[in-house]
Design a protein around this nucleic acid. Structure first.
Lengths: 155, 155
DNA sequence: TGACATTAGATGTTATAACACCTATATTCC
DNA sequence: GGAATATAGGTGTTATAACATCTAATGTCA
């Protein structure tokens, strides 16, 4: 029998409500997926957030994006995107240049090095996603995506 | 029309696979839920992890739990549980006492103050959960929980 | 046009997470 | 019984996240 969350986290008492059980299931599952994903990235010297930035900037070529645009596209809140990009610039993964049209803007772009890194990760990332979710049927994945989309969009 | 994740994070290209789309949906949804939950906790002076510890220790009364037991029951990986508990002890939310039977063990217990705090939060927490997930039907919540449990337990 | 508000981004500081390593106690097994 | 191993927890250090505040450039509108 597959253990449910209550057993997983050694909880004795029942959940207070179905809402709570669902919330904890979402958060717990996400944490497990993210931990394992970041573990996979470690040998490549980047964090999960940095990987996301590279993926975003690869998709935004050749124009690049300014700091706030990168931040909006991230999966997670990122109050200090400046220093996240600082570190990636130091690591040679991105470049930044102040815009000529609006001198407040700083356009960030992926470097050749960053591009090679993220390209080389495509295969292991997809393999990891399959490992994490490949045991669900296509129908189950679609249902899951639909329900989570609905969670994020209360009407 | 409810926007899907691709629109939400301003992504231009389609997802590479259904696995990837599902993974990103789980993580994105969790991040939104957690952020809003922690925002709610801020006025009470505790973080989401600290709230979880209080909830765990309340459920473990009157025996209490040692550090590693607390850590295992948390939703997220917590490599430095010692100093998490240090801070909570400083804040008067928990007490610690080295065990007599096995002097390696340090038993952590919730204080009266911590107990009052977590009790007083029950209502707002349940209200938050309803706000976050109350727009799904019971059947949808059950399906969601079932699918997420399955994600965590590849057979 | 000039005062005021807004936006983009940077910086200073503190809190927390992450990692490696260390100490004390208990267990194992010859 | 004692060396080797395992387990629980603590400590030192670095990296990152979080928050408040600051500067520069642009937009708004009387």
């Amino acid at each position: 029998m597959t253990p449910d969350l209550k057993q997983e986290i050694h909880q004795k008492k029942p959940f207070k409500s179905l809402h709570q059980e669902a919330q904890l299931n979402i958060v717990r599952t996400s944490n497990l997926l993210v931990d394992s994903f970041e573990q996979m990235l470690k040998p490549y010297g980047i964090t999960g957030t940095q990987y996301n930035v590279l993926r975003i900037l690869r998709g935004a070529e050749p124009e690049g994006l300014c700091r706030n645009e990168v931040r909006e596209r991230l999966l997670n809140r990122m109050p200090d995107a400046t220093r996240l990009l600082d570190r990636m610039e130091e690591g040679g993964l991105v470049t930044r240049a102040r815009s000529g049209e609006d001198r407040r803007l700083v356009t960030t772009r992926i470097t050749k090095k960053g591009r090679h890194l993220v390209d080389s990760l495509d295969e292991v990332v997809e393999k990891k996603h399959r490992q994490q979710l490949g045991h669900l049927t296509e129908q189950q994945l679609r249902t899951l995506i639909k329900l989570l989309t609905q969670v994020r969009n209360p009407d």
